[in-house]
């Protein structure tokens, strides 16, 4: 028994050496839809354009269901050693390094965690998307660093108001509307408390 264990250890050590020598380029792992979950928000990660990924220097890969979740993680874990961050092209789902991608922020684009940011592999694609969808802002990777990642219901309020002005308001909707503004205040309040 002990001999077996010893040999396993030897194999382990050999692997260590091999791993230390061969340092090839960091590659993103494939998304496993039935068992991957977002490191931040616990949601299942769909193998689609919104999936993102961080690979740590030790080879651990973490997946996120929304670009916003990944940036949230980066922000909270500055002490960790990151080898690479990946996002996906909105159209062909190709993995691209996060610092080489172009982003579009548009409040009406639905993303899994409602951060409303999508990524593209080149500026042309991002521009094309932005031209098609009103209210888009193109962000380069550097600009994304300063993005506020706002997704509170402020913006939702604005959306709602827009909808209301179009449709004939009825009492029910107005009531819920008021309720929301109340909540927003609560949420704002909460934020102040936390800081």
């Amino acid at each position: 028994m002990n001999k077996k264990f010893l040999s396993i250890m030897m194999v382990g050590i050999a692997m260590l050496i091999i791993a230390a020598c061969g340092k090839d380029e960091v590659k993103p792992a494939a998304i496993k839809e039935d068992s991957d979950k977002c490191e931040v928000c616990n949601m299942a990660v769909v193998d689609g354009p919104h999936a993102t990924q961080i690979v740590l220097e030790d080879g651990k890969s973490m997946v996120f269901d929304d670009i916003g979740c990944m940036y949230g993680y980066l922000d909270k874990n500055k002490d960790k050693k990151f080898a690479a961050e990946f996002v996906r092209d909105y159209h062909d789902k190709e993995w691209i390094k996060a610092d080489k991608a172009f982003y579009v922020y548009n409040k009406s684009v639905k993303t899994p965690m409602a951060y409303n940011v999508v990524s593209f592999k080149d500026e042309a694609r991002a521009k094309k998307f932005a031209d098609k969808n009103d209210g888009s802002t193109i962000l380069s990777a550097e600009k994304l660093e300063d993005h506020s990642w706002e997704r509170n219901r402020d913006m939702m309020m604005k959306n709602k108001m827009k909808h209301h002005s179009h449709s004939e308001g009825n009492k029910m909707e107005d009531a819920s509307h008021e309720k929301i503004s109340e909540h927003d205040m609560k949420e704002e309040h909460k934020k102040e408390d936390m800081h």
Binding site: D34, S35, C41, N42, K190
Partner: peptide
Amino acid sequence: SNVNAQGLLLYRAF
């Protein structure tokens, strides 16, 4: 049956 399965999850719930 799923590796991430759970009964109830409260995530950022207040």
